[in-house]
């Protein structure tokens, strides 16, 4: 299901926890699976659950509870824009609308070329750097004024 490299990464996560508590690695393992596959199909969740000796439903609960997991395919670049109050006060909503116009999609939609998915995010803990957006859960982009957004989109094209 997953590459040896991914499985090794999961093993490293398991090693962080006391013996018998391998289930603690489920969040990391799901993230690793998502990183490799682009999203989390049911088989991947089941693979992770079996690998960690936990019920698949328990892993599914985790995958659906934390909102950075994608249970449906997303574009090559998932852009998550924070629109929460502090960001909103500093242009977060404007940035999101700007992106929607530029990409021609709404929230939770993907561009027809499969490049971009746009999501509305909750507080990322970076309110002083608003507007803030996250690329593929990993890369945080700060103070995203229009020209910065343009630059980012160009870079990701």
């Amino acid at each position: 299901m997953l590459t040896t490299e991914s499985v090794q990464k999961i093993d490293r996560e398991i090693a962080k926890y006391p013996a018998g508590q391998q289930r603690s690695a489920v969040m990391a393992a799901l993230a690793i699976a998502q990183e490799e596959l682009g999203w989390l199909p049911g088989e991947a969740i089941e693979f992770v659950a079996n690998y960690l000796s936990m019920p698949p439903m328990a892993a599914y609960e985790v995958a659906t509870f934390y909102n950075m997991y994608d249970l449906a395919p997303v574009g090559k670049y998932k852009l998550t824009v924070c629109t929460n109050l502090p960001c909103m006060l500093s242009g977060g909503v404007d940035a999101a609308e700007y992106l929607q116009r530029k990409l021609g999609i709404g929230f939770n939609e993907t561009t027809p070329d499969g490049r971009f998915t746009l999501q509305e995010g909750e507080c990322m803990g970076a309110c002083g750097d608003a507007p803030v957006l996250l690329v593929n859960n990993r890369r945080m982009c700060c103070r995203m004024q229009p020209d910065e957004i343009d630059k980012l989109l160009e870079e990701l094209e």
Binding site: M27, Y66, N67, Y69, E122
Partner: peptide
């Protein structure tokens, strides 16, 4: 000591 990475739940 280890780090545990959250995944989006306030």
């Amino acid at each position: 000591l280890n780090a545990h990475h959250g995944y989006g739940a306030y």
